[in-house]
Design a protein around this nucleic acid. Sequence first.
DNA 1: GTAATTGCAAATGGTTTGCATGTAA
DNA 2: TTACATGCAAACCATTTGCAATTAC
Lengths: 157, 157
Amino acid sequence: MGDATTHDLLQTRLDAYMAKKGLRSTGQRRTIASAFFNGPSHITIEELLVRARQEDSRIGYATVYRTLKLFTECGIASEHNFGDGPTRFELADEGDDHHHDHLICLECRSIIEFHDETIETQQEKIAKRLGFEVTSHKHEIYGICANCQSARAKKKR
Amino acid sequence: MGDATTHDLLQTRLDAYMAKKGLRSTGQRRTIASAFFNGPSHITIEELLVRARQEDSRIGYATVYRTLKLFTECGIASEHNFGDGPTRFELADEGDDHHHDHLICLECRSIIEFHDETIETQQEKIAKRLGFEVTSHKHEIYGICANCQSARAKKKR
DNA sequence: GTAATTGCAAATGGTTTGCATGTAA
DNA sequence: TTACATGCAAACCATTTGCAATTAC
């Protein structure tokens, strides 16, 4: 993840989607896409706006919202809300077999990604048993990360 | 779930929490508690307000919010937001071993609960491997329920 | 040329809060 | 009698939308 190949793939998917829908490749969209591809993961609209404005200071709030909605629709971005503040966006997984979920530290708000085939499989089994056709899922584990645990232990001493 | 025993248990936990914090047992709180215990699961603040007002028409919006925050804090309610509209509340599970998660139909918005020990265990394993101390988790599967699938099939015919 | 796109500001929806009044203990 | 609780309206925050001006194709 994060290499040129991934970006190319996602860029291609975006281009295809825009072509199919008759959408236009504008300067703002290109700037926001670049900020999104090159910025940190789990980025917010606000953070993205700051980065995009370094390229083009006239970019507006609503445009970033609209553009990220577009990215999500076409499948190159996925959104998560981890229960505090605003929605965060990340590059989409490249396929079902690459899907990842998150552990979120309630103290420092750091985010760790994990992938677990056992859970994915089990989930499918449950859905099938209940006659459910799965579209997507959200699996978030909240807790205290290793770092914050030792910081706490230190404080107590 | 839903039997008198469960309610008694939760009521006791609520009373204990209020006593400990020096909070008062008011008419509004009793009314809202009763509406929550006897109403449908996955209820919204709005729905709860309507029900509570059948008992006491002067109950305000903010009071229901504040009361359900109290219920959540003391552990008798748990909240979920399934991505559309407002937060929904349900009676808390009675222990870690009873924890359940949700399947949500994107078409009819029905909610199915499931419990899976394999997933719970696997989740713990992942957290431990990453040095994470788990506080809570959220596992939601979104898709199309059996009913809506057959309704779709019928439409196509 | 024309339909898509943008920026802005205003609107929205869910939730929280300040404050004067009411009430449980 | 004195905190705590309540109702109301206003504030808040993230997000969406209407619209006139702009721009890609």
